[in-house]
Structure formats: C-alpha cells, structure tokens
Design a protein around this nucleic acid. Structure first.
Length: 630
RNA sequence: GGACACGUAGUGUAACUUGGAUAGCACGGCAGCUUGCGGAGCUGUUGGUUGCGGGUUCAAAUCCCGCCGUGUCCGCCA
C-alpha cells in the first residue's frame, strides 16, 4: 500500500510550496502543477528536479534562473529531501540515501507480495473480456496476444484493488461454427489429434469445399439458422463448440491464463437480452423504423448527435447504422450493445450459471448454461474489451450509442483496448484460408510454446552447472513462458507486429528470461549469505550513491508504475519497469560486492532481498512466475 | 473519397496522454571482462536532420496546421 517515490515527491512539492510562499507571498500555484513539473534529472544533478521556475518566470517577471536561485535559498531541508541546487533554472534535489533506504526496504519487507498494491479501484467491479476466440479452431499466435494482454491488465487491475471478472465470450452461433458443424456431419467426425487443432484444420477444408461447390454455402446457412432454434442441430453445435473450448483451455492453462466465466452466444439468445436492449433504446426514443428508402423495414440508429465521439459520424453516409435488418436478424453491433448493457447491469439476462471446470490455479471456471443457479456476475462499473484494432470503428459506435442513451458515464467507462494485430512475413494468419498452417509447425499458441520449450531445454543442457539442481523440464517450461509473455507484452499494444520465431523466443537482452535470471541470482545470494534479517539503523547509512541507490530508487517506484499500468491499460509500462529494474540489479550485482561487502553487507543483502521481492511482484503482474533456479 | 492508427540509428523499441537539461534500452557490428556473490551477465565502442514542411513557446520527438508513406475500417456480409 505504500509508494516511497510518491512520498518523496510529495515532500518535495511541499517544500517547494514553502519556498514559494517565502519568496513570492502573493503567488499561488497548485500542488498538481508542481507535481507535473517534476522529472528525473541527470544523475549528477540529483534525484528529482522541478521546472517550476519556468512557470513562475512570466508572472514574476524574472528569469527562471533567478527564481530557481531564490527558491533554493529559502528551501528547507526535509526528512527525505535534501537541500536543492539551482542549475539553469531547474531546482534539483537529492534524496537522503539512508532515510530513503529505510523507507523503501522496510516497506517492501513489511508488505511482501502486497508491496505496490493500491486501493485505487477499491469496491469497484470491472469486467475484462478476452480473448473470445471462435470455438472452431485452436488459439493462434494472434489470439495469444489478446489473451496475454487481457491477463496482464486483469492482474494489474486486481492489484490496484478492483474486483475483476475475467470473461471469455464464446460465439457458438456464428457462421464459423455452422461451417465446422457442416464439416463434422459431412466430411469427417473422427478427430485424431487435439480437438481444436483438428477442427481448425477441417474448417479450412470446409472453406475450400465451399469455394468449389456453391450449394454447400446454402446448406451451411440453413444449418446456421437451425442452430438458433430449439433443434437437434443447436445441441450438436453447442456440443461441438464445447469440445473445442475445452481443448482451447488446455492451451490457456498451459500459458497459465485463467478466467472466471464463459458466456455463450446461445445463452444470450435464449435470455432475450437483445429484445430487452432494443426495448431500452425504444424507450429512450433513439431508434428509428424507416418505412421507405434504403433502410425500409430495419431498426436503425442515427449517430449524428454523437459526433464528439468520432468525426466519422458527421459523414452523412456513415451516420445511420442498422441494428436489426429488414429480415429481422440483428447485426453484430446490436448484439454487442445488448451484451454491454448486461455487463453494466442496465438490463438483466437472468442467466443460469453452471460449473464448467476446475482450473489449475484452484479456482472454478463457470459458464452460462440452460440450467444452473443464479450468480453474481455482471453489474460492473467499468468494462474492458480487448479487441484488435481493425474493430475500432464498431467499438466506437458502441460508445456512441451509450452516449446517445444519455449515459456519458458509461460511454466513458466502456474501454476498448485496441491492439495491433499480428501478421506473418508472407500471407495472413486467416483462420478461414488456413494461413496459420505452416510447413513444419503451425502458428498456434501450442506450437509456439512447444518450440520455446525445446529451445530453452537446449540452453539449459549447456548450462549443466547451475540447472542440475532444478527440474530441467520445469525450468524450461517457466523460462519459455517468460520469454513469450514478455516479448508479447513489451511493446505498446497498438503497434502492429510481424510474427517471427526468433523474436518471440528471445532469451537474452530485453527478455523474460533476463528478468527471471536476476530473480534467481538474487535468491542464490540470499541463500549463500546466511543472512540475518535484522538491519540496524546504522546500516542504512552504508547505502552509497552508486548503483545501489539507483536500484533502490527503482524499487521505490513500483507502486507508481502499477497505477500507471492500470490507468493507461498498457502492460508494456510494467514490462519496461521490470526490465529497467533487472538491468539496475545486474549492474549493482556486478559492481558492488554483497557478501564481501564489509560493513555494507547487511544493507546490500537487504537490497537484494527487496529487489527479489519487487521483481517477483512486477513479473506477477505480467503473468510470469519466478523460479529459484534456472 | 472519408475516418482512425502507426512512422524514432541497420533491426525491434522507450519517452508523446502531462512540452523541460546531452532522445533511454535491447538486437546486430567492433573491442574487452570469468581460479571471483550464477556469463541467460557486465564494460567500452559503433550508429539518430525523432517521415517532410510550417506554426506556437524561453523550450517541441511531445502541442497545432499542411503534406508524404504504411496499415486498418467505412455493407441490411459474418
């Protein structure tokens, strides 16, 4: 719950306020503005800097340089913050090493796995939907990105006190499942490999058949219609999809990704969610039923008034969106909107929930079902959808409709985490055309992990000396996951990515294994040191102003970084932090002897222990488990 | 045609939301460091007109305007 870096900044801000009051009694400047003026200066100048003199320069009609000097002369020393220096108009301060070391190290020790957590989202429910892969194919490397972002964001939000519902939406009524069901009935129903992979491969074949024989397309459409009614086909489709989802969860669990609830399109249909949603829109008077013209017989919505959401809606060609077609079939936007309304608790689905499976993390995965009990899902204050950037426009429409309903609050709390979709060097990863089928290995999440495992085993076998103590298979497993997850999450989600085996399986430099390695080394030092946990007050003074203090500063920032990750919904902030901290630890480790550190031994050991804990906490947010030996 | 996103050394990227001092990191290249707390490491070096052109400002990778390039989306499809 504590954030030492925030404490230091707050103290600095207070001291600046005091100086301003002394030097310029008639000038008032907000604390927030002072916080915004702070930055990290070059190492030799100090630990925190403020450019507040530049702000004051105009109103005081003096140069920033003069102001900084005036402020510095009136500056009082604080508990953490030492006397400042004024350089080029900047106010630079050093933090007191011993006091800060005590603050950081004792906080990390006391709070352990909870260090850095906050109550930012205390009492608030939030729904994260991810990855919602169609239930007729295996997870591809592209779906993995979605799943990993969802996992990391959920972890971060949960650490910030939110009550997170991790939901996986399953569209078992889509045309894709209809095509797969057609294949199951007409091509082959004897799976000879992992079910999702088998079904995905067959799906590619079905599409090839459709291209050759047009009549199949009609059959599939007929099948799709039957699936939406109370028929034998509907049952078959659900069963087929469930078998696929169970297979997909083998993949999910192998990546240690867990969810709380599956929501099936067939259950949404049965619960009449769509009708209720349309009812709400009708009551609000924002839907229209054109009797003539292009949209005769449809239910449409006019988005012109939502042009502050997107300029696109100013375009007269674009502003009318169909919710229900003239044949009575709802569009995807309408379905999504109904689902959104349920998530926010505006409409009730009366879902019945059943147990689906026990997850390896010990929690239960529930599912919507035609029979079961009622449970307390939904009714969230914030909803997050992790969806590829190609869906940006429809996602914008959903925000716009909430706004038209007069619910700007919900519109604001409906968050689309858009991510750049993954491509491959040649062709696309299309599930339909089979672009994901490779010659030697496929572009599936399973193949990626298998490849990573074999590569890390190779490396482990070369490093016999250290890995002999541990179980090689387990180490390979952990390292592989670390490598893949960090690589997927290290860049801004929005950037588009071209998949390459080399990049995804990086073990050196800015990599997952590098972070895990620093953790393992820290663990070994503590093990060897026969370390007495009691640090006397005097020992903190052994913290110097070299690599040890740089590391300490980073440790103090963890809580800030966690909140930033949550506020911006960008896991790469946490990855960046973990890498930075790992680099700082490596430098410290290389240059400053710990066990042979003489008088500084105790405090350096405490720093190692603290680093180990913070690395653990940071990697946990990213979804990476630390290991003691590698 | 319109809207949105992206453009930073050979490559992958950080910093852009909130303007601040010499644009941070990794890969690659080159040169080093292990009888030493774990070399999946460390040190040094190489490489940048931050796509281009204007503007605002004491100060621009960051904000504004206009271009250029790449990608995505724009159906009563699913």
């Amino acid at each position: 719950m504590s954030s030492p870096s925030k404490d230091a900044k707050a103290e600095f801000a207070q001291l600046i306020q005091f100086s301003i009051k002394e030097s310029y009694p008639n000038t008032h400047i907000s604390d927030e503005e002072i916080f915004l003026s702070m930055a990290e200066p070059r190492t030799e100048h100090g630990d925190i800097s403020s450019s507040i003199s530049f702000r004051l320069s105009r109103s005081e009609k003096k140069s920033p340089k003069e102001i900084a000097e005036a402020l510095a002369s009136k500056f009082r020393e604080g508990y953490l913050i030492k006397k400042p220096s004024a350089i080029n108009g900047y106010l630079n301060v050093f933090i007191d090493e011993a006091a800060y070391a005590k603050l950081v190290i004792s906080a990390i020790r006391k709070e352990g796995d909870d260090y850095g957590k906050s109550d930012l989202g205390k009492g608030k429910k939030i729904i994260v939907e991810s990855p919602s892969v169609n239930p007729n194919k295996p997870w591809l490397v592209s779906h993995l990105k979605n799943a990993l972002i969802g996992d990391a964001i959920s972890n971060a939000l949960s650490s910030c006190g939110y009550s997170v519902q991790r939901i996986n939406y399953i569209d078992d009524l889509g045309l894709q499942v209809a095509e797969s069901l057609w294949g199951f009935k007409n091509l082959n129903n004897k799976p000879d490999k992992k079910f999702d992979l088998w079904l995905g491969e067959q799906y590619v074949k079905v599409n090839a058949e459709i291209t050759k024989e047009k009549s199949i397309e009609d059959d599939v459409k007929e099948l799709n219609k039957l699936m939406e009614e109370d028929t034998a086909e509907a049952k078959e489709a659900r069963e087929l999809a469930e078998r696929c989802v169970i297979a997909q969860y083998e993949t999910s669990f192998s990546y240690r990704i867990y969810h709380d609830l599956l929501i099936w399109e067939s259950d949404i249909l049965r619960s009449k969610l769509l009708e209720k949603a349309l009812g709400v829109l009708r009551e609000k008077g924002i839907t229209e039923l054109p009797l003539e013209g292009k949209f005769a017989g449809c239910i449409v919505i006019n988005l012109e008034k939502a042009k502050n959401i997107s300029k696109e809606f100013e375009n007269p060609e674009e502003k009318i969106k169909v919710l229900v077609r003239s044949n009575g079939v709802a569009t995807y936007v309408a379905k999504d909107l109904a689902f959104d309304m349920w998530k926010f608790g505006i409409i009730d689905a009366d879902f019945q929930y059943a147990w689906f499976m026990k997850e390896p993390n010990g929690k239960e995965l529930y599912t919507t079902s035609h029979e079961g009990t009622s449970m307390d899902f939904g009714k969230a204050e914030k909803i997050i959808n992790i969806i590829g950037s190609s869906q940006r426009f429809p996602q914008m429409i959903l925000k716009a409709i909430l706004e038209l309903m007069g619910r700007e609050d919900l519109s604001k709390n409906r968050i689309h985490i858009s991510y750049g979709e993954i491509g491959i060097e040649q062709g696309t990863l299309s599930g339909r055309k089979g672009g994901w089928l490779g010659d030697e290995r496929n572009y599936t999440a399973d193949d990626l992990l298998a490849e990573a495992r074999s590569r890390s085993l190779e490396i482990i076998n070369k490093n016999e000396k250290f890995s002999e103590k541990g179980n090689k298979e387990e180490i390979a497993e952990a390292v592989s996951l670390g490598a893949i997850k960090l690589e997927y999450l290290r860049t801004d989600p929005e950037k588009k990515v071209t998949f390459s085996w080399e990049k995804a399986l990086s073990f050196e430099g800015n990599s997952g294994p590098y972070c895990m390695y620093t953790y393992a080394r820290a663990s070994r030092i503590l093990e060897k040191a026969d370390y007495d946990e009691k640090i006397s007050k005097g020992d903190y003074s052994q913290i110097s102003r070299a690599d040890d203090f740089e590391l300490l500063k980073a440790l103090g920032e963890f809580g800030d970084m966690l909140e930033k990750t949550c506020n911006e919904f960008r896991p790469n902030i946490m990855v960046d932090y973990a890498l930075r901290t790992a680099h700082l630890f490596s430098k410290f480790y290389e240059k400053m002897p710990v066990i042979k550190g003489g008088d500084a031994k105790e405090v350096r050991l405490a720093l190692v222990e603290a680093t180990r804990q913070v690395m653990h906490n940071a990697l946990a947010v990213i979804g990476i488990n630390t290991i003691e030996i590698m």
